[in-house]
């Protein structure tokens, strides 16, 4: 998946990954895809809930060695 924007939130604690995501999404166009990297264990639930509430689509997410990657399409 080719993202339009990539955010590195690895090593950052709550609430920073969500704040960074929100900031990035704000500047994107509807339909564009954001790739987010995070290591906060709460990020999986956080990103899922936040995307749903904001009308964005969580296209996919993976976990590799403690690094979570999310692809979010702006709604």
């Amino acid at each position: 998946m080719e993202p339009n924007t990539t955010i590195d939130a690895k090593g950052l604690a709550c609430p920073q990954p969500i704040l960074k995501t929100k900031k990035a999404i704000k500047d994107m166009e509807s339909g564009e895809v954001l790739e987010l990297h995070a290591t906060d264990k709460g990020a999986q639930s956080d990103v899922t809930a936040w995307a749903k509430a904001g009308g964005h689509e969580l296209l996919d997410h993976t976990e590799d060695n403690g690094v979570y990657t999310f692809w979010i399409q702006k709604g």
Binding site: C14, P15, I18, L19, T21, K22, W50, A53, G54
Partner: peptide
């Protein structure tokens, strides 16, 4: 303040 910032991120 964490909840406040989170809520702001929720618009």
């Amino acid at each position: 303040y964490i909840i406040a910032n989170g809520a702001a991120a929720y618009d």
